[in-house]
């Protein structure tokens, strides 16, 4: 199949999965996120050739961002444009944070190959999201641990913690947002391997 053909097929399939996910189908969401992470990894690995260590952290940061902002997807828009804009935003943000824009080896504007390239070989992430999760306050951490890690229902988690069901939902929602903020803040402070940028 040609690249364009593969792109169109991937766009249609992934969009279908996401629309089912946004309607509340967890298995479709999991399949979508898994496939998306392979595309993100390929995209970042190609563009962060000088910082291969950063790739997996950025994949995870982008997945969390996409999860938290998934309500901004409009079914009338191509999925590729939406996902690519988020990936590019996260990539530019990372490079800007480090003022190392020279690290770019590939133009960012090109979204055409986004859904063609995949990379399923996950490297080890340097930043441990699990540890960050542990730093959340109980009212956010417990709802996430019970409903998302242990797979309990909202009602079960509410009974277990003595919190109300709406407090569980709010706790999960706020906790995921707080996690994204912690990642944003932790990556500003993180020291960076001293690579001298090329002078142009």
């Amino acid at each position: 199949m040609t690249d364009q053909g593969r792109l169109n097929a991937n766009e249609a399939r992934l969009k279908g999965l996401l629309l089912r996910a946004l309607a509340g189908e967890a298995p479709a969401y999991q399949a979508w996120l898994k496939e998306l992470s392979a595309h993100l990894r390929a995209y970042f690995r190609k563009r962060l050739t000088r910082f291969p260590d950063e790739v997996e952290d950025l994949v995870q940061e982008s997945l969390l961002a996409i999860h938290n902002q998934r309500h901004t997807y409009d079914a009338d828009l191509p999925l590729t444009a939406w996902v690519h804009a988020i990936a590019k935003y996260k990539l530019v943000d990372l490079l800007r944070r480090r003022a190392r824009r020279d690290a770019l080896t590939d133009p960012l504007e090109d979204e055409s190959d986004f859904l063609v390239a995949t990379d399923s070989e996950a490297a080890e992430a340097k930043r441990d999201v699990g540890k960050l999760l542990g730093q959340l306050p109980d009212r956010q951490r417990l709802p996430i641990v019970h409903t998302k890690l242990e797979g309990l229902s909202v009602a079960e988690a509410a009974r277990l913690t003595g919190m109300s069901e709406s407090a569980i939902k709010v706790g999960v929602h706020r906790g995921m947002k707080a996690l994204a903020v912690m990642i944003l803040e932790s990556s500003v402070d993180r020291s960076f391997s001293p690579v001298r940028p090329h002078e142009h």
Partner: peptide, 23 residues
Amino acid sequence: MKTDDLVMLLANGGGAAERHALA
């Protein structure tokens, strides 16, 4: 946390999104 575990974490409990969030 591995990326696959993060995917599980995000997907568990469903991905239902707020509707008409912008408006």
